[in-house]
Amino acid sequence: MNTRDNNLGPRQDPARHRLGLGFQAINRRNFFERMKTWSRSQLLSTYVMGGNCCTRELYRLSGPNPQTKDVRESFTEVEPIESCDVLIVTGVITPALKPYLLEAYERMLRPRYVLAVGTCAASGAVFETEALDQIMPVDVYVSGCPPTLDSLIKGLDSLREKVRLGDHLDGGLDAQS
């Protein structure tokens, strides 16, 4: 069974979280399927879009800080964008930036994961711009203006857990509209 053909995404089945079907769905998969998602979660390649203060905090994760050792071991920043698993979006979503974000999302590896960092990407914040989930499905939000190092580490950990369970929202842009 191909991972892309899995129809048990949360958007398709609204009662999934309430009934605990997610757990059953994971167990229903065969060994190779689980092996694939687990191995993928061991090293995730990320790409950061945005040029604001959250980015400055994000780059601290790659610095020689003992607190961020686990993150450095399980996440790597890659170029080109065709080989990246996780798109990390920071800052405001402006009309000028929107086509480039969608383009980046199209060019990523499947299934795609999106992490929204900071209040600007999540809701537009004080600048009253568009929220990121209006244009693409967002897997994990990290709150804060800017988020602290701890919350960034927690956000990346929960994203890694999602990858391990194969729990993604990526049904393609057409499925969302």
Binding site: G51, N52, C53, T55, A96, L97, V126, F127
Partner: peptide
């Protein structure tokens, strides 16, 4: 202009002290 968010227009008509918060987010 990818990050143009209308900073200069959005501060008009507001109180000066409340703007210190926004000016912290002017430069990255």
């Amino acid at each position: 202009g990818l990050h143009h968010r209308g900073f200069e227009n959005k501060v008009l008509g507001k109180e000066p002290l409340s703007l210190t918060f926004q000016f912290e987010r002017l430069c990255a």
